[in-house]
Design a protein around this nucleic acid. Structure first.
Length: 476
DNA sequence: ACTTAAAATG
């Protein structure tokens, strides 16, 4: 029998062995207080430490939260005292939206009762827990009650404000922090990027670079956050920033991880540089599902739908499990190619073979697939029969196809529904107006124009990228 | 020895 420390070290590296080691610890009478100590070598080892390791192993195995909680309950039932190392793991386990906030609250009251609430690590994870279950005010309260919050807790609070979309407060909080590190900056930058404020995200990154003093060391998370902002900002300057970051990675001979590779593929894809996508994809060492997804979307979105379908086959040959996003990319590719039967086949297989329940996006893809190929009636039938109430994205796909196929009758109906759903969306008015104009209904077209003026809805100024490619640059 | 904060694909 090895000494307990070696056994727990082994568990740390091979969390899949949790059931066996858990069983061994139980049968050896070690997981109770006082331990029966049937194994003399384990004399002097701490049951608390063992429980902490077991809980940690549940997390590493990505077991559901109640697995960790069951071990914690066993710990309490056997009179073993949790310590400051116990609670952060528990809060991490319950910090998912699919576990009920009340579970975490009771863990919180356990921590309070045991008086280890003065611990920074524990408080940090409590702030994080409340923010992830959407209870911003409890997160704030926990943070405010800390006597001297450390940097990590400050970062956790900053992240909470960003997650909640309250960027104004996040910025105020950030400026008021006494200490800031690369994680604080990354949190704020990704907060702006996630909330669609790409320009400001890049501006913050520039401000970070311009800082004097400490040598700057962007880490992977920082680069990925900035690349994501660069991908989504429709401006050639964003592409140049993205190129510079790529250059930085290459100069530092940093390996292209799945995170970096995915972010770069997406960035080049959104700016229309498909050739670079392929290069980055090939160079990415450990491709994960999302890397393949990004590359499939890049192909589907840049006129290479057939290649996207081929990549899907290769992905399965490589032994990866497609996820929801894979099927969005796949169905988009089928729609572009007007491969109606193939798309419908995959839509069915998505559930029957891959066990994925379609989301609104997938229904939107199928409506697009049918309507784009001219099957407007079938698309309407499909919308009637789908189990979810069609949202604006689904109806938008139908309206777009009505314009292409000059179906004024359906377009009239769908367009009006969409305008009542999204009265601020200028594009919806424009398409309906074009549909009216194309079918000679000038009075109705003028009516739309008047309605827009009355509601002061502005049409965005048009611009064309047709002649020289998106930025007037030579496409690679 | 066990504990905290940031990141990608729709």
């Amino acid at each position: 029998m090895p000494c307990l420390e070696l056994l727990l070290q082994y568990l740390h590296n091979h969390p899949c062995k949790l059931p066996q080691i858990h069983a061994l610890l139980i049968t050896s009478g070690f997981l109770q207080s006082p331990p029966r100590r049937l194994i003399p070598m384990w004399q002097g080892s701490s049951p608390t430490f063992s429980y902490n390791c077991l809980i940690r192993a549940c997390l590493r195995r990505r077991d559901p939260p109640d697995a960790s909680l069951r071990i914690f309950a066993q710990m309490l039932a056997h009179g073993v005292r949790p310590n400051r190392h116990t609670f952060p793991s528990l809060f991490k386990a319950v910090a998912t939206t699919d576990s009920s906030p009340s579970t975490g609250r009771s863990v919180h009251s356990q921590a309070l009762r045991r008086g280890i609430i003065l611990d920074d690590f524990t408080n940090c994870s409590i702030v994080d827990f409340y923010s992830r279950v959407g209870d911003l005010s409890s997160a704030r309260k926990t943070f405010d009650e800390m006597i001297q919050p450390d940097l990590a807790s400050g970062n956790s609070m900053l992240h909470a404000l960003c997650l909640h979309g309250d960027l104004a407060s996040a910025l105020v909080f950030f400026e008021s922090m006494v200490d800031r590190d690369v994680i604080s900056w990354t949190s704020l930058i990704s907060g702006y990027a996630r909330n669609g404020r790409f320009d400001e995200a890049i501006g913050l990154f520039r401000r970070w670079i311009m800082q004097k003093g400490l040598p700057l060391r962007p880490n992977e998370a920082m680069l990925v956050s900035v690349l994501s902002a660069c991908a989504n900002l429709d401006d050639f300057r964003a592409l140049f920033y993205g190129l510079e970051i790529h250059g930085y990675i290459v100069r530092n001979e940093a390996p292209l991880t799945a995170f970096l590779g995915t972010a770069l593929v997406d960035m080049y894809s959104k700016h229309g540089y498909l050739g670079y996508c392929t290069n980055v994809f090939e160079a990415t060492v450990e491709k994960e599902v999302c890397t393949w997804n990004a590359m499939m979307s890049a192909l589907a979105g840049n006129g290479k739908a057939a290649e996207a379908l081929h990549l899907f086959d290769q992905m399965r040959v490589a032994g990866l499990q497609p996820n929801h996003i894979t099927f969005v990319a796949l169905l988009t590719a089928c729609a572009r190619q007007k491969l109606v039967d193939l798309g419908l086949k995959w839509f069915k297989l998505m559930t029957s073979e891959f066990g994925l329940v379609p989301l609104m996006e997938h229904y939107g893809c199928v409506v697009d697939l049918l309507a784009k190929a001219g099957f407007i009636k079938e698309a309407i039938q499909f919308i009637r029969r789908m189990p979810l109430q069609a949202d604006a994205s689904v109806l938008g796909a139908l309206l777009g196809a009505c314009k292409v196929h000059e179906n004024a009758q359906v377009g009239d109906d769908v367009g009006k529904q969409l305008i009542s759903l999204q009265p601020w969306h200028s594009g919806r008015y424009m398409i309906l107006r074009n549909i009216y104009a194309a079918s000679g209904r000038w009075d109705d077209a003028a009516g739309i124009k008047n309605a827009m003026e009355k509601l002061s809805i502005k049409k965005p100024t048009g611009h064309s990228w047709v002649v020289y490619g998106k930025y007037g640059l030579r496409q690679h």
